[in-house]
Amino acid sequence: KKRTSIEVSVKGALESHFLKCPKPSAQEITNLADSLQLEKEVVRVWFCNRRQKEKR
């Protein structure tokens, strides 16, 4: 499966949402994916990866 490159503006939106809520619910992920026009899975994985980055 190909990697999804996320635009800078979208990254900013994801980042600001992450600061408010690092573990969004499935519903929040769906809403966020719809508003940013990304697949739910891409948003879910982004949050997962971002939480791991926070641990490092």
Score class of each variant (00 low, 15 high):
residue 9 S to R: 12
residue 6 I to W: 09
residue 16 S to I: 05
residue 24 P to W: 02
residue 24 P to V: 02
residue 4 T to H: 04
residue 51 R to A: 09
residue 48 C to G: 09
residue 10 V to T: 12
residue 35 S to G: 07
residue 14 L to R: 03
residue 48 C to H: 13
residue 25 S to A: 05
residue 44 R to G: 08
residue 40 K to Y: 09
residue 16 S to Y: 13
residue 25 S to Q: 03
residue 39 E to H: 06
residue 25 S to G: 07
residue 27 Q to C: 07
residue 32 L to G: 01
residue 24 P to E: 01
residue 43 V to Y: 02
residue 1 K to N: 10
residue 12 G to V: 15
residue 35 S to W: 06
residue 28 E to Y: 11
residue 49 N to T: 09
residue 41 E to S: 06
residue 30 T to E: 09
residue 37 Q to H: 12
residue 6 I to K: 11
residue 14 L to I: 04
residue 31 N to G: 10
residue 36 L to T: 02
residue 24 P to I: 02
residue 4 T to M: 11
residue 52 Q to V: 09
residue 48 C to L: 11
residue 34 D to Y: 05
residue 28 E to V: 04
residue 22 P to C: 10
residue 6 I to D: 08
residue 10 V to P: 04
residue 52 Q to T: 06
residue 20 K to V: 08
residue 19 L to Y: 05
residue 53 K to P: 03
residue 48 C to V: 14
residue 49 N to C: 07
residue 43 V to M: 01
residue 42 V to C: 07
residue 19 L to K: 11
residue 26 A to I: 14
residue 29 I to H: 00
residue 21 C to A: 06
residue 1 K to E: 04
residue 29 I to V: 07
residue 10 V to W: 09
residue 54 E to G: 06
residue 36 L to F: 07
residue 8 V to K: 14
residue 2 K to A: 08
residue 53 K to F: 08
residue 36 L to I: 04
residue 17 H to W: 11
residue 37 Q to F: 05
residue 32 L to A: 01
residue 3 R to T: 10
residue 16 S to D: 13
residue 19 L to V: 10
residue 49 N to K: 06
residue 17 H to T: 06
residue 39 E to C: 09
residue 14 L to E: 00
residue 38 L to S: 02
residue 18 F to W: 04
residue 55 K to Q: 08
residue 16 S to C: 10
residue 45 V to F: 07
residue 13 A to H: 08
residue 42 V to A: 13
residue 31 N to W: 10
residue 52 Q to K: 09
residue 12 G to F: 11
residue 11 K to T: 12
residue 45 V to R: 09
residue 35 S to R: 15
residue 35 S to E: 12
residue 23 K to E: 12
residue 14 L to A: 02
residue 34 D to N: 15
residue 13 A to G: 04
residue 31 N to C: 13
residue 54 E to P: 03
residue 35 S to A: 12
residue 6 I to S: 10
residue 30 T to L: 09
residue 2 K to D: 09
residue 51 R to N: 07
residue 33 A to P: 01
residue 9 S to W: 07
residue 19 L to I: 08
residue 50 R to V: 01
residue 3 R to S: 13
residue 41 E to K: 04
residue 10 V to F: 05
residue 11 K to V: 10
residue 11 K to N: 06
residue 1 K to I: 07
residue 26 A to D: 13
residue 31 N to K: 13
residue 53 K to D: 15
residue 20 K to L: 07
residue 24 P to M: 01
residue 39 E to T: 10
residue 11 K to W: 09
residue 1 K to L: 02
residue 6 I to V: 10
residue 18 F to R: 00
residue 6 I to F: 06
residue 32 L to W: 00
residue 15 E to C: 03
residue 40 K to P: 07
residue 14 L to C: 03
